[in-house]
Amino acid sequence: MSPLPQTSSPLRRPARLAVNAGLVIFLALYAAIAFLQPNYLEPGLFMNFLRRAAPLVILACGQLYVILTGGFDLSMGAVATLAVLAASILINGDPETTWAVIGTLYVMGIAVGLVNGLVVAFLKVPSIIATLGAMLSVNGLALAWSGGAARGDLPDNFRNLGRLVWRGVPLVGTLPLAAVVLAGFVALAWWGLNGTVYGKRALAVGDNPRAAELAGTPVAATRILAFVVSAVSAVTAGILIGGFSGVSVNAGEGLELQAIAACVIGGAQLLGGRGSIWSAVFGALSLFALFTLLNLIGLPQALRDSIQGVILIAAVGASLWRTRRRT
């Protein structure tokens, strides 16, 4: 009777459920995987998928912190390589030292993150250049230290972090330790952005640093902390990678760009101001599902790069199209 419904429906539309773009892409890709290989629907294989995707997801979470504050961290891959090589050199076959060495790895990571953050915040070097410099230096350092070749072996208790799988766990059957590490890290990263004031600060700084500063946000501290989180995530990922693929000099090669791509696919906005931890998680899972799918199809390794490029552009294009339609 009344004309009210007609006027209110267009008004109500903006409040539609915000579904993460990365989740949609991930579900679509995983459905395709399950279609080709139905046993991927079993909890065991899904857990295995999570285990292998864990490093990329963790890296993406760290990268997201930096992206939210408006920067980039190109040094992640090098830090992951450093973690793997340093672990093998420092542990030197003695399982007793594993935990102390892991502590040392985090100290090294935090140091790199601090340097990145300080250079960006106080020397005003754009983060893309600052972290490029860090990438070259850290990579060179790791190679110089190890003599340019993978040396030594990692003891079992270190490698277990990446490859141990508990069997006979109720509900899921098998539970890889890496998946637990992954869940723990994502929970921590989520808490950092949603449970503390830091998340709001990061978004404010990324959106408009000058305005954030005038509003009393500690811009420099927010920036620096983001780089530290990113470096810590790189060390964590490095430990997991060392766990399941062993020592290699190019353990972390190219991971930094994959992490950035993952965040963007999940809907985070480069140069800051928009994104959530789910952008990173589902973006990274999508990217990894894509790799898995291409593997199953039997596409040559080389063409994967191309498909990744297409997906990257398409994902950003699609998110732009969505926001344009909304406004």
Partner: peptide, 29 residues
């Protein structure tokens, strides 16, 4: 040695940009 070269190169890239970037007022991303 080649690896040390890379370390120095990275540091010099940052330093070279910092020399003129440090006077920037406001914030950089």
């Amino acid at each position: 040695d080649a690896f040390l070269k890379q370390v120095l190169r990275g540091a010099i890239v940052v330093a070279a940009v910092a020399i003129h970037a440090v006077r920037t007022k406001g914030h950089v991303a």
